[in-house]
């Protein structure tokens, strides 16, 4: 009873916030609604008994990916009138693409059949007495190890690509080399000064202080200034 209620609450908020992501005018609000949608998806995972996936969804998507989204969207200077300019011109094409996708989805949903093995698996997806994370790990690192490694390689390639695209050598910048600074001796040295001793006592002469600067002769003092 409570689980069903929770399911409908999560599902309703998920769909509502997903709609808000698309329709909201301000992109920052869109991202925030996207985060709300992620949260509700995590809630649905929890209800399905997949607590590991729920937590990973929150950590990876909400904690890292959406932060960067938000970061970028907030930095963008978006002109809303310009965004809506071509709406009428592109509306028919958009409608056609949307209709095709809808028909495809309908075709998939109406002809969908569960394999008989899948039906029994769906009732009991996890071996008994094993936590969620362990069950996932057992499958991922044994049966699907090559696919898993391939995923890692794809991510690595994407990462290197991003670095190559954004890395540029700027001439004339002077980078700090911390190791070099720490290893340097001679020009800068730390001294332990006994407490209460003046600098003269330990043999450090200060440069003579410059002559007191004479106050400028001002003829007119105005309103008196500060005191």
């Amino acid at each position: 009873m409570i689980a069903a209620l929770a399911f409908y609450v999560f599902a309703a908020i998920l769909i509502a916030s997903a709609v808000m992501v698309v329709t909201s005018r301000n992109p920052v609000y869109s991202v925030l609604f996207l985060i709300l949608a992620f949260f509700n998806a995590a809630g649905l995972f929890l209800l399905a008994g997949a607590e590991f996936l729920a937590m990973i969804l929150v950590i990876v998507y909400v904690g890292a990916v959406a932060v960067l989204f938000l970061f970028v969207v907030m930095m963008l200077d978006i002109d809303f009138t310009q965004l809506r300019e071509g709406f009428q011109r592109y509306a028919p094409i958009g409608a056609i693409i949307g209709a095709i996708l809808l028909i495809e989805l309908l075709m998939v949903v109406t002809t969908w059949r569960f394999a008989p093995e899948a039906m029994t698996l769906r009732l009991n997806p996890m071996p008994a007495g094993v936590t969620n994370a362990e069950a996932l790990g057992r499958i991922l690192y044994t049966d699907y190890i090559y696919l898993f490694q391939a995923c890692g390689l794809i991510l690595l390639v994407a990462m290197i690509g991003a670095i190559v695209l954004t890395l540029r050598e700027r001439p004339g910048t002077r980078r700090q080399n911390v190791g070099e600074q720490i290893a340097r001796s001679g020009s800068v040295a730390l001294r332990s000064v006994p407490q209460g001793a003046g600098l003269k006592v330990i043999g450090i002469e200060r440069p003579p202080s410059p002559e007191e600067a004479k106050p400028k002769e001002v003829e007119y003092h105005g309103h008196g200034g500060h005191h």
Binding site: L32, M55, I59, G63, F71, N132
Partner: peptide
């Protein structure tokens, strides 16, 4: 006392940044 306690804590602590970003924006 949940099975994924440490992940829960890690998730919550990674959400802390939202309070700051939303406040700033």
């Amino acid at each position: 006392d949940i099975n994924v306690g440490i992940l829960y804590l890690f998730a919550i602590s990674s959400l802390g940044v939202y309070g700051v970003i939303i406040a700033g924006w």
